[in-house]
Design a protein around this nucleic acid. Sequence first.
DNA 1: ATGGCTCGTGTAACGAGA
Length: 255
Amino acid sequence: MKLATWNVNSLNVRLPHVLEWLKTSPVDALCLQELKLEDAKFPLEAIEDAGYHAVFNGQKTYNGVAIISKSRPEDVAKDMSGYDDAQKRVIAATINGVRVVNVYVVNGQSLDSDKYQYKMAWLAALRGYMANTIATYGDVALLGDYNIAPGDRDVHDPKAWEGQVLVSAPEREHFQALIDLGLTDSFRQFDQAEKSFTWWDYRMNGFKRNLGLRIDHILLTKALSARAVSSMIDVEPRKLERPSDHTPVITEIEN
DNA sequence: ATGGCTCGTGTAACGAGA
């Protein structure tokens, strides 16, 4: 099965890109982040007309996550149970026997921001939520926009970014804490080109100059990672008119 | 130089993103 994640930065604007991408890159589950629309405005018909199911957890203007899947999603859960959060950043469902967890991790803005404190607390909650999820379901895939570049090779200019939000040591420790639950960064299971990124700033011709970060990830529990056969970043959607600033990541798992 | 684009809101200019 193929699992993918894509921060679309407004599903209103990006719906044509998503539908076109699904045609050329059919996947079993596509996790979307930053829908920026409330559930009543989710384009369910268009996605169903394309032959997919969708479950979603949206809010107006900010955040919002969805799972689009070929087979019917089972046991859908929104938000992290036990963690009170007004922001819609989590949705999970079981698809073909795999527990798919889709997260839009807090950005954090800057290390001296209240939002960074929120990010730290949120990531601590995610660790607990994932520990429970793994204990309950076994085979778990954690996909999403983590807003963390795990290592310096995931940053176009590590010196320029040193200590900044998205790369700071406390954020990387939170990423490692997820790995320590028994998860594997599926992208790094395979040989990859140097300077492989999933996000580029809209400004300063960031994409053309490949001034990017790898902050979107697909983590797999051990048995799933043992079945992974490929993982890749698809930069093509970033070349379109009015692209998202993020681009999809896909991991394939053999049955 | 703390900007640079893009989005939603709402119909000007600002907050947020990363």
